[in-house]
Each structure stands twice: as structure tokens, then as C-alpha cells.
């Protein structure tokens, strides 16, 4: 594990140094990434021009959801986002060149094109989180204070696991990248909103199949001190770390199964 992190850092650093040779381009790309990320916030702002509450949630509360969705998503995206290119590498045969190197292809995939531009997603999330925390009407108990970093870490792990699982899916369906983005980008988008605005069956899927409800929705109900509109037991609010751990194990298994399949069926 430590070795993997070391290699990851070295590779990411080499890519960054290469990108830094074109500073103007790098800054420009970072800024445009910020702009792209802010589009979702613009939508939320426009919605609250017309109403004080969306399904009972105030603008600040939705901002809190937006930030606690975006920060974990951005962190996972920084570390693992390029894993979604797997299908392309299988198609072009470049995965083979990764397999003849003594480092996990997942690390090679994830560090590819690593540049500070990836921070462009995190930046707005952090700023909005600070604003939302400052403005939110929360009774700050020690439990709620601890919950904030805990939900950010769990959320990061959940999204990270989803990046890996959706990449592994592309071992089976090589042209499936678009479909997998409905899980990753779709997941990032829907967790920005109070989950009970989505249809009941939809939410059930999102709670139990793709555990997106544990990224920020369940912990947020605890922080914001709200009853669960779907009546899940209170324990669910504290389940995020456990869910994240289980999902990470599943992701590791899925990746291994995918790689084994690739190496035993060829392509």
C-alpha cells in the first residue's frame, strides 16, 4: 500500500512537471474546469431565485449538500478519475503496454495526464463548503463536528470505489464508458440535491444498490438534524464509513476480476 502511494506520487509529480512546462495552458485549463464545475452551482442559485425552499430544504442546506457531494467527488476524481479511460486503452491495445510494467495498471491509468487542473473541481467545493458551514443553522455538538470530516472521507472512498468499479465494468463492456458516467457523474450530480425529491424506487436503488445515499445524504440528515423522509433507522446516518469500507473491498474484487478476465479472454 505504501509502495503504491509512493509510486502514485512519483508518477503524478512527473506528469505535473511535464504540464508545468506550459503554465498558461495549465492555468487556463484549471480555470475552465472551475467554470464547468460551477455550472451545477449556478443551477442551484437559479432555482433559489424563485423559491426559498426546495422540497423543504433551504438554499444554505442545499449548498451544504452540494459541497459535501462535490468535495468527495472531486477528491476521488483527482485520484482516480482517469480510470474511466480503461475502455479506450483496451480498444487501442495500450493496456498491454501497461501490463508489461511492474506497477499496477490501475495506478498507471489513474496518474495518466495528472495535472493541477484536476484541482479545479475541488476548489469551488471547498469554498462553498466553508460558506455553507458558516451560514448553516446547525447546533454544533461534538458528534456533528466529527461527522463533517468523516462524511467527506467516506464520500471520497465511496466515489473512489465507484470509479474503480465502473472502470472494471469496461473490461466487460469495452464501449460502456458513457453508461458508466451515469453512475459516476450522475452520482455526483444527484447527491447535490435532497434525495427525497427523487422517486421512491429511484432512491431505493440509490440507497441499497449504488450506495450514493451514504455519500452525504444520510450523514447530512444527522448534521442538519432532520428526520429521514423515507423513514430509514437512525443508525443509517452513521453507516457511511462501514458502507465505504465494504464498497472499497468490492471495488478491489471487481478490478481483480476484470483484469483476470482480460488476461484470460484476450482482446
Amino acid at each position: 500500500m505504501a509502495e503504491a502511494l509512493r509510486v502514485y506520487a512519483l508518477l503524478a509529480w512527473t506528469w505535473t512537471r511535464a504540464a508545468a512546462q506550459y503554465p498558461v495552458s495549465m492555468i487556463m485549463l484549471t480555470l475552465t474546469t472551475v467554470a464547468l464545475t460551477l455550472l451545477d452551482l449556478a443551477a442551484i442559485a437559479l432555482i433559489f431565485v424563485h423559491t426559498d425552499r426546495l422540497a423543504g430544504f433551504s438554499g444554505t442546506e442545499v449548498m451544504f449538500l452540494y459541497a459535501t457531494s462535490l468535495v468527495p467527488f472531486a477528491m476521488a476524481d483527482i485520484v482516480l478519475g482517469t480510470a474511466e479511460r480503461l475502455g479506450q486503452h483496451v480498444r487501442e491495445g495500450s493496456l498491454d503496454t501497461m501490463l508489461v510494467r511492474p506497477v499496477s495498471p490501475l495506478i498507471q491509468l489513474a496518474t495518466e495526464d495528472f495535472t493541477p487542473r484536476r484541482l479545479g473541481k475541488l476548489l469551488p467545493g471547498v469554498v462553498v463548503l466553508a460558506v455553507a458551514l458558516e451560514r448553516a443553522d446547525v447546533d454544533w455538538t461534538p458528534g456533528r463536528i466529527v461527522m463533517i470530516p468523516l462524511m467527506l472521507v467516506s464520500g471520497t472512498l465511496i466515489f473512489g470505489a465507484l470509479w474503480v468499479i465502473t472502470a472494471a465494468f469496461q473490461f466487460v463492456v469495452v464501449d460502456g464508458r458513457e453508461a458508466t458516467s451515469s453512475v459516476t457523474y450522475g452520482g455526483a450530480f444527484l447527491t447535490q440535491y435532497p434525495m427525497h425529491i427523487f422517486g421512491r424506487d429511484f432512491v431505493r436503488t440509490l440507497t441499497f444498490v449504488l450506495p450514493l445515499a451514504f455519500v452525504n445524504w444520510q450523514p447530512a440528515l444527522y448534521v442538519l438534524d432532520r428526520p429521514d423522509p423515507h423513514g430509514l433507522p437512525a443508525a443509517a446516518r452513521f453507516a457511511s464509513p462501514a458502507v465505504a469500507a465494504v464498497l472499497c473491498v468490492l471495488a478491489a474484487l471487481a478490478w481483480r476480476a476484470g483484469l483476470r478476465r482480460y488476461r484470460s479472454t484476450g482482446n
Binding site: L11, T14, W15, R17, P102, Q108
Partner: peptide, 9 residues
Amino acid sequence: DSLTLIRHL
């Protein structure tokens, strides 16, 4: 840079 990456790998 490619060769530097290889060195780290």
C-alpha cells in the same frame, strides 16, 4: 519525461 516516468515505474 517519458523515460523519467519509466525510471520511477
